[in-house]
Design a protein around this nucleic acid. Structure first.
Lengths: 251, 251
DNA sequence: CTTTCAGTTTGATCCACATCAAAACACAAA
DNA sequence: TTTGTGTTTTGATGTGGATCAAACTGAAAG
């Protein structure tokens, strides 16, 4: 009994499958790393991206401190990134969905700066960083797009700094819902109805609020006819109203 | 009288000087973009970095919305980066000192995301982005280092998210002082005595606090024998005490 | 010199959100 | 079915930092 248990523990951490990536037929192509490349270039990319890794809900794709050697494209599923502070306090620094790139924080110091935790069963394409470097020397479009992705991550984070630094609770939560809505829409999902993959506590951690405050804001928005919430299901009923909350500093 | 006034307004915005950069003899070399390159490689870099631009105190290096075409290395002086929100609220998102790179936020969308404002008379080396792209295809070390710089900016910002999201006022301010101290030390300045280039309000904006709170924390730290503050001059008297404040959640 | 002004300090008061507490709920395991 | 566990909601109370207000400082301008 001890042996299978041990084996399970080792295996559930990561399930590797040698799979040829099929960027050319992937419907996330235009959101993902190879956005805007030609068909020949896509072939080269595919040769680089050859490992599809499955991460089950609750498991980590990587952890802070681990050696960095690859970035990951989310193929399906949903992740949170979490930084843990020396004294145990932690903060969610981002949520990642299909087509988004994870792990760029590790390039600077050669080791990851945060944990990436799957919030549902997920699959990622693994992109070895040294190959990415080589290839982006050959393919201008790849280099440029990779730079753009890193730069957008910088801009995204300064947007979060704005949330945390100057907005009040309800503004932050409206902004959060609108951001999710917009990203889901870009992936062909309904921007008005969706399931939250994270808990109230994780939302709160991301927004610098306590879970009770998140819950109260949801209730308030419901009362005001802006949204319907039932557990993790959200329906936006008045998107303009939500936008006004976070655009006009309305109370 | 009207004419000189107009001319002054136009000129004070930016003073361009065609100067050969001298990365090879620059004492910021190891902190800056060309860190770790060979002498031959440095020659190539120098050919790329050929404009030294002076920005006077209070002027902007670039503004949000302007077309992005270059990143900048701070040669001397001090900058703040500032994001202004639609309704006029703004936040300082970072401070940059000699050897640091500014403007990487513009790559993603082709236009700058924030204003870069000089807090004292400053000089920057201008690095045209298309040249940087080309050259980093040829020089592996340059590509790698540029990626590291972008990645470190991502990590820096997630550190600020941590400040804003989970730390209390005095912790934020201790962390801020220690960060300044460490960066000045890396540049050969005293880590224990320095001049703040920014106002209490700018510190507060960066840390998500009001200027009064910053002032009170300084006073408290002074009372506790941790620092001496006189206007913009700071002397750290008990660096371990400061570290404990932000490492242990002490009140 | 005086005046002006931006920046800073300090005190008094307020309030948005945290904290504490308890109940309701969902869902899985026994 | 019960039991347990994690999540969410809601209410009551507390508090850290914001806000309001006033005085002070130093530097620059007249």
């Amino acid at each position: 009994m001890a042996q299978p248990e041990l084996a399970r523990q080792q295996n559930t951490q990561l399930v590797l499958a040698e799979l040829k990536a099929a960027c050319a037929t992937c419907n996330l192509r235009e959101l993902c790393l190879p956005a805007g490349l030609s068909n020949e270039e896509l072939d080269q990319i595919e040769a680089m991206v050859n490992i599809c890794r499955k991460i089950r809900r609750g498991e980590t794709l990587y952890r802070a401190g681990e050696v960095f050697d690859a970035v990951y494209a989310v193929r399906s599923g949903f992740f949170k990134s979490r930084v843990t502070y020396e004294d145990g306090r932690d903060q969610v620094t981002g949520f990642s969905m299909a087509g988004e790139i994870l792990g760029m924080d590790g390039i600077g110091q050669g080791s990851h700066n945060c944990d990436a935790v799957a919030l549902e069963d997920s699959e990622v394409c693994s992109i070895p960083y040294t190959r990415l470097e080589e290839l982006s020397r050959e393919i201008d479009g790849l280099q440029r797009h990779f730079h753009k992705l890193m730069s957008r991550e910088i801009v995204r984070e300064s947007g979060v700094m704005m949330l945390l630094g100057v907005m009040r609770a309800e503004e932050r939560i409206a902004a959060f819902l609108l951001n999710l809505s917009q990203r889901l829409n870009a992936r062909g999902y309904s921007p008005l109805e969706f399931h939250l993959r994270m808990t109230r506590e994780e939302i709160g951690s991301y927004l610098g609020l306590k879970l009770e405050t998140v819950s109260r804001a949801f209730s308030k928005f419901h009362k005001d006819g802006l949204i319907e919430v039932e557990q993790k299901f959200v329906r936006i009923r008045n998107i303009e109203g939500l936008k006004q909350i976070y655009a006009h500093h309305v109370n």
